[in-house]
Design a protein around this nucleic acid. Structure first.
Lengths: 346, 346
DNA sequence: TGTTAGCACTCCTAATCAATGAGTGCTAAT
DNA sequence: ATTAGCACTCATTGATTAGGAGTGCTAACA
């Protein structure tokens, strides 16, 4: 189906590569001179005319060069682009050495990605949505406050302060802890249903209010991750690309970057569809987000086992260096897969 | 010293107010017409000429209206502006109702501030630098990992995973917990010196490596707050002001906003100098940050007792609505003072 | 039949220029 | 001390122009 005679391919390829470089519409003369086809500009013109008719390229206005259409980019990404098979470099250790908390690791990663690509990078924390409770503990912090700590399979720790009327004695605490752990350990958020809750409360007897609070905390922790966290870096990079930096577009984009919620729904598209490489490319209008119509979005998901996963993504102009971007994402994906497998050895 | 005859004051005031509104250089005719002075434009011109000589206003180019100079703004803020004495509105509850974690509260606050003012808002988490340890607990999460939880006076919770060779039995854990708490409770970060550490390790005996790890975690938690977190919102608001939105300046500013580190040193200025209202105004070059030379920065610190404090700030064009901004900050400051006093009642 | 040279045509861009108008400074009259 | 009047400055705007890049088409060519 997606067939194109060799010469047209070459010309399309040349047009796109050139456009990626310069950002300027590219004319027949340029292709004629800077390709190994040895054809006159007139011939190229004819071919270009064809390509335009087929929808791979388009003219911003009569009598100017051609620029790739969304379809053109798509063809390029799918068929023309050469896939670099690069070895995985070891930025991992470098990053990990200097940071501790997960948020910082992610922020660092985003930063490196943005610097490497010169586009905007985003990265979500692994969602532990379907993840299982591994450990719960409540402790008396001071007279009126109890701290609930919840750890999940992925070693993600959440805590919540709970205010109480009066302090609990050690024995009660111990009992409650045992109660909570025996009842909740190994359960995923979805598995904690009304039945479980009722049973728990009953067993807690007089302290059912505390249990109730802990469950609230648990729900909280999970709900927080429904609108999961997303880190961005290099948002201002888009200003480097004239086609995006006129004040209206730039403002829209930057606002989108600030509204994390929009980015989240952007990456959530990714989670829906699966592919073998795990790398998705949305060109212009292919993305669901209207604001991205002049951009391309490339995303990858990284896995953590236990059903946990996060997403990394790059947002840039349509004429982005797809090879480099996909390469970077692929590399980082592998590294993240590795990084979060086990916590850092001290 | 800062003396100015009544009429000049009025004119300066009129010029600045007008400029705050329009952002356009304001001419003598405008003042003549829209002030209650009943003077001809010629008279105003003479006065303006004086004011210019005195450095309160300046002409962008020969024969155009006048705009306030940094000094003019300063005079306005210090002497002319009327201080609204507004009652503290109750946005607090609204915000708190819908959020749980501190980061979210802060992020929300920043957002409201940005929306209210139409400028860029920033807010730092309270630093618990000089804060005291209130509660420490280590627990066995699974065979190879221990979770250390540290709570400070300000009810800020930090946790750290520690990998171990083999699981500790309950009794050992209990002993270590008692050991840690008796030795560290009530101490501030600075008070934990080599002596304390040596004593601790000695008492821990065979498990001194665990203690060592916990101390590392503690140091970690503190070090994280050295480069304390800062939240921003409304960064794209600066694009609304033509004098800041030309692509060079905008890019510089937005980059600054993204480089949290720069913002942090910006707010750290605040911490140095103290004032009765607790609100600082930096106009243009008054700020230490070169990138802010076309902006004004208004900051306030909020207190938490126990030596903890954070900063909220607004960044906008020099012609910002100082009254509104200072008002907002004052209100929010009071609210934050209150919010963090005690954790939310469930 | 595919390729190419040539040419008229389109349309964007940058440069130039004049007109406009807001605003000033100065002087002379009130 | 205030103001009317006037000459002057200078940014802004719109119109016009020239230049150039690029196209489509036609006719000639291998």
């Amino acid at each position: 189906m997606e067939e194109l005679e060799e010469r047209k391919r070459k010309i399309l390829n040349a047009i796109i590569r050139n456009y990626l470089d310069t950002g300027e519409p590219v004319g027949s003369r340029t292709i004629s001179k800077y390709s190994d086809l040895n054809l006159s500009s007139a011939t190229i013109r004819n071919e270009m005319s064809d390509l335009e008719e087929m929808g791979y390229i388009l003219q911003p206005h009569t009598s100017s060069g051609r620029i790739p259409s969304d379809r053109g980019y798509r063809f390029y990404v799918d068929n023309l682009m050469k896939q670099k098979e690069q070895e995985v470099t070891e930025m991992k250790d470098f990053v990990i050495e200097h940071t501790q908390r997960m948020e910082q690791v992610l922020q660092q990663m985003a930063k490196m990605l943005a610097i490497n690509t010169n586009y905007t990078a985003m990265i979500t924390a692994p969602s532990y949505h379907h993840n299982k409770v591994k450990f719960i503990q409540i402790s008396q912090v001071d007279k009126e406050q109890i701290l609930a700590v919840i750890v999940t399979e992925g070693n993600i720790v959440k805590n919540k302060m709970i205010s109480t009327k009066e302090a609990l004695d050690n024995e009660t605490l111990l009992k409650l802890n045992i109660l909570l752990n025996t009842n909740l350990n190994g359960l995923s958020a979805e598995q904690i249903n009304l039945g479980t809750i009722a049973r728990l409360k009953e067993q807690a007897g007089i302290h059912s209010d505390i249990v109730s609070d802990v469950l609230d905390a648990l729900a909280d922790a999970i709900q927080e991750d429904e609108d999961l966290e997303i880190y961005t870096s290099g948002t201002t990079n888009i200003l480097k690309y004239p086609e995006l930096s006129d004040s209206k577009k730039a403002s829209e984009l930057l606002t989108t970057f600030e509204e994390k919620q929009q980015l989240i729904s952007l990456v959530n598209e990714t989670l829906a569809s699966e592919e073998e490489t795990g790398i998705q490319v949305y060109i212009g209008a292919e993305s669901s987000n209207q604001n991205m119509k002049d951009c391309s979005v490339v995303t990858a998901t990284y896995q953590l086992g236990e059903g946990m996963q996060g997403t990394i993504g790059i947002i840039g102009p349509k004429r982005m260096d797809y090879e480099n971007v996909m390469d970077n994402l692929k590399t980082l994906k592998v590294q993240l897969d590795a990084v979060f497998k086990k916590p850092k050895e001290n």
